[in-house]
């Protein structure tokens, strides 16, 4: 009796080992070099190789982050930056989804709109900044619009190419069953274009972060980008580096959320499992 109980326990342990080990191992391996670099940086700062008014020690940066956390300013700036990003990202994505779906599906819409959109795409998006400020002032609207413009193009391009790359043979199956246009779109075209839509979302998010920084640099009194400018004007390098670290952390988290969404919705794909 005892043996029977003991055997599954051993197996359980083995399986756990097998499952957890590789991912932990990868994290451990990946953090060796950064940790060594940070230690070296700390050491070199302490013995005075790096001038503290240009490159403060990691401990000082951590300290400035801690102070910001306790006095609440960290949350104020992070939340307003996230708010701008999310709003711009949503507007840009919704616009890209609607226009991209129409351009991808209706060839007349494509010949009407695509040349214009391609022309606009060749304008570096930051060139819009003065115009947006002129139109909307330096308040929230001009920032959100700028971010939306940045997010729009990668999402749009991926949706259009996703829809145009759909296997015609799958659409024929829908036609055999007399699907209406709406049924074709919702039951075949959108699911089939989902992978490239998600790719578009992720690169759109990357650009979104870039444009948040740009928008906040161009005139803001809150936000992480504002902290960058503020740190520059007050000769506080620890503030600048703290902001950069914040951008890195937030960028990674938001990307991980989208990646999680991707693995969750695309588990039917043949390739996603291997990643």
């Amino acid at each position: 009796m005892k043996e029977v109980i003991a055997i599954p326990k051993v197996n359980e342990g083995k399986e756990k080992h097998r499952r957890i080990n590789p991912s932990i191992q990868r994290v451990l391996l990946g953090s060796i070099v950064p940790i060594l670099l940070i230690l070296a940086w700390e050491y070199l700062s302490r013995i005075g190789v790096f001038p503290p008014h240009l490159l403060p020690a990691p401990s000082i940066i951590l300290q400035s982050l801690m102070t910001m956390t306790t006095d609440g300013s960290l949350w104020t700036h992070t939340s307003i930056t996230l708010y701008r990003l999310v709003l711009g990202f949503l507007f840009g994505t919704v616009a890209a989804l609607i226009i991209g779906a129409a351009v991808g599906y209706f060839s007349t819409v494509e010949s009407l709109l695509d040349p214009l959109i391609q022309a606009f795409r060749s304008i570096p998006s930051l060139a819009w900044v003065p115009l947006f400020i002129l139109w909307m002032g330096i308040g929230e609207p001009s920032k959100v619009v700028l971010i939306a413009v940045g997010v729009f193009f990668p999402v749009y391009l991926n949706i259009v190419s996703g829809i145009q790359g759909i296997d015609r043979k799958l659409i024929e199956v829908g036609k055999i069953y007399h699907f209406s246009s709406w049924q074709l779109i919702s039951k075949i075209i959108l699911p089939a274009a989902l992978p490239s839509f998600l790719v578009g979302l992720r690169s759109g998010l990357g650009l979104g972060w870039m444009f948040v920084v740009a928008a906040e640099l161009m005139g803001a009194s809150t936000g992480i980008g504002y902290l960058l400018v503020y740190g520059q004007n007050t000769y506080a390098p620890e503030l600048i580096i703290s902001s950069i670290v914040l951008f890195a952390i937030l960028g990674k988290i938001t990307d991980a959320i989208l990646k999680g969404l991707e693995t969750k919705t695309l588990h039917w794909q043949d390739t996603i499992v291997k990643k």
């Binding site: 043979k169 199956v173 069953y177 039951k187 989902l194 039917w268 043949d270």
Partner: peptide, 27 residues
């Protein structure tokens, strides 16, 4: 496509995002 027509193609042409059950009920 006439409403009386049903067709089995030379290839399966299944919807890769649907499970077997939903693929069979697709039409």
């Amino acid at each position: 496509v006439h409403k009386k027509i049903g067709m089995i193609f030379q290839e399966p042409r299944l919807m890769p995002w649907l499970k077997v059950y939903d693929n069979i009920g697709f039409g």
